[in-house]
Nucleic acid binder design. Structure first.
Lengths: 117, 117
DNA sequence: ACAATTGTTAACTACAATGTTAATATTTAA
DNA sequence: TTAAATATTAACATTGTAGTTAACAATTGT
C-alpha cells in the first residue's frame, strides 16, 4: 500500500473527510449512512470516499460475517497505515522542540560554568 | 492564538509548505532563503508563508539578539501549538485501534469461557 | 537625495477541488 | 421481467489554490 504523506494530508485537509474518519472511528459504515450523517448528496460523498480510498485511509468491502449477504451493502472501514505515517512525520517535526530544549540546557550549563568563579 | 485543525491541515496539505516546516525545523530562516531552497519566486513563497502564519504554524520577527539590527531581515520560526493540536487529533483517532483490540480481546475471552468445558 | 536590498501586495492566468443533477451499473425483490 | 434499492460515474458550474510578473513599501548605505 502506497501511503505517501502527500495524499494523506490532502485527504485529511477537507473537513468533511475528517468527519468521515471520525464517524468510521466509531464503527464501519455504508456510503449512504455517511452521506446522510454529513448532510451531503450521494455522489458528493462517493467522491470523498474515493479520495479516502486512494490515500489508503479507508477500505470498502461487502459485509462479511453477516447472515444475509446483500452484495449491495458495502461497508467502509478505517485503515491504520496512513495514520502511523502521519504520526511518524509529526514526531520528526516535534523533535524540533526537544532539540531546542537540549540546546537551551547546554547553553545554560556553559553559561553557568563560565560565570562560576 | 486560534489554531483550529482546519487551517492546520489545509496549510500542511501543500508539499511546499511541509518542506518549509522541515526547513524551519532545523533553524529559523528568512523568506528569501526559503524561496531559494524551494526553487520558488519570492511572491509565491510569500503567500505560502502568509498561509503558514495565518494557521499559527510559524511566526516572523526581526532578527533579535543580533549585533547588526537590520530591520529588513526578518526570520521565520516554527510555533508548537498547531502541532500539539494535530497530535491530539491523531491520538483520538488512533485510539480506535486500541478500542478495537480491546474488543477483540474481550471477544476471545468470552469465546474461550463459553467453549471451556 | 538616490539607488540597492528585502519582502509583500496586486492583477492576472491556469488548473484542481467540490457540489449538483442526470445517467449508468449491480443486486435484490415482486 | 420489471421495478426498487444502493452506489458510482459523467457532465457541468462554481469556487479556491498556486504560480507568474509588475508595482509598491520599508530599510540601509553612498
Amino acid at each position: 500500500m502506497v501511503t505517501n504523506l502527500d495524499t494523506t494530508f490532502a485527504a485529511l485537509a477537507d473537513p468533511t473527510r475528517r468527519q468521515v474518519v471520525e464517524l468510521l472511528r466509531e464503527r464501519p459504515r455504508r456510503a449512504g449512512e455517511l452521506a446522510a450523517a454529513c448532510a451531503l448528496s450521494g455522489p458528493a460523498m462517493s467522491r470523498h470516499l474515493r479520495v479516502l480510498r486512494a490515500s489508503g485511509l479507508v477500505k470498502v468491502e461487502v459485509e462479511e460475517e453477516q447472515v444475509e449477504h446483500d452484495a449491495r451493502l458495502r461497508v467502509y472501514r478505517l485503515l491504520p497505515e496512513p495514520f502511523v505515517d502521519l504520526q511518524a512525520w509529526l514526531d520528526q517535526v516535534q523533535a524540533f522542540w526537544t532539540d531546542q530544549l537540549d540546546a537551551f540546557k547546554a547553553h545554560i550549563e556553559r553559561t553557568q560554568k563560565g560565570e562560576h568563579s
